[in-house]
Design a protein around this nucleic acid. Sequence first.
DNA 1: CGAAAATTTGACATGACTCAACTGGAGTGG
DNA 2: CCACTCCAGTTGAGTCATGTCAAATTTTCG
Lengths: 197, 197
Amino acid sequence: MEDNTAATDTLINYFNTFFALTAEEKELVVSSFQLRRYRKHQYVLQEGNNCQHFNFVLQGCLRMYQIDTRGNIHILQFAIEQWWVNDLHSFHKNIASNLNIDALEDTQILQITYQNLIDLYEKAPRFNQIFRVLTENAYIGIQKRLLLNISSTAEERYIHFATTYPYLLNRISQVQIAGYLGVTPEFLSRLRKKTIK
Amino acid sequence: MEDNTAATDTLINYFNTFFALTAEEKELVVSSFQLRRYRKHQYVLQEGNNCQHFNFVLQGCLRMYQIDTRGNIHILQFAIEQWWVNDLHSFHKNIASNLNIDALEDTQILQITYQNLIDLYEKAPRFNQIFRVLTENAYIGIQKRLLLNISSTAEERYIHFATTYPYLLNRISQVQIAGYLGVTPEFLSRLRKKTIK
DNA sequence: CGAAAATTTGACATGACTCAACTGGAGTGG
DNA sequence: CCACTCCAGTTGAGTCATGTCAAATTTTCG
């Protein structure tokens, strides 16, 4: 167990952008979350296992993805600083996940276990509100993405990604971005050639 | 204003499947939600307007969709009995929606306004928990759908739809289902011909 | 420096779309 | 209750977006 104080400060500041936390609530955050470090390529969650933690990224970059029957990787989400990443379904139902989460860079994460999260809700019910709002925002985001995927060409999706997350373009390789956009790396390469002009 | 009692009973039963409501909480539900009827083809929300209500379907069927720049309709969601349907983004940020919701059948809805929902959370904070869980479940569902869209062919998506929602196949026209699956009606027709064999 | 991975490029294959024509059933007005 | 219209569904022919596979090139990193 290493000292969490500096790490949880970041998380407390994050929560504070939603609601000012009481001293008690801050205490609970400090005692409920645990800092953990992952090296590049290391798994945070591997399919077949149950998702045991809610993960909040302090530093670094992760991807969450599924491998389909043809062996192709489909990236559901990248997570960099101040993002949450976890398989909600596996976490809440306590069932095996069919998703993988691994580190694209050396990464630091704050983790809370299922039981600690339940206790947190119990002891400080206001976190229900915070996580309700967080989940609503996540829902809005993924709904936008679904719509974009259904209604646009790969080129439009790439341009949208590049303008929405310009800071990810230099940080994440094209293979990964292709897996996120739902195209092959080859085709993304052609799109870029065409678009850069 | 018509009598809501029978209608809100349905909603209270629905909430009860999550947590047993207190008498007070039931009272609040009765006084916060309002029954409204829509005829087939009638708009519940039209793009350009702000989404003013959370909608819970008592009876009937709705679709929520976006019209893209080429004039194509993309259906985000169908909503039948005991489903919620609304544009969360527009509702929470109080901005103009770019989505439409309209009735595919004559439909009865229970509606709560933004202000009433805020009051409900205030007076009965436990609803934060209920809606947190509801939103988490909705998130899980839409994430599955996104993954399916990214990783499968139209045929696989149709088969998945047909086995997951068999009761919708006879209830919703193929044009609508095509708009939900993200294919043209013509192509869906060919898929069906091939699949039925 | 050398090996492995990422990216690019080319040739070809295919899933899905477009547009247009045809069919059949449901609703509507006289 | 018939005639008419309109929309959903089907079918065909041609096209385009994107995938597949294989090879060449560049970059990354131990």
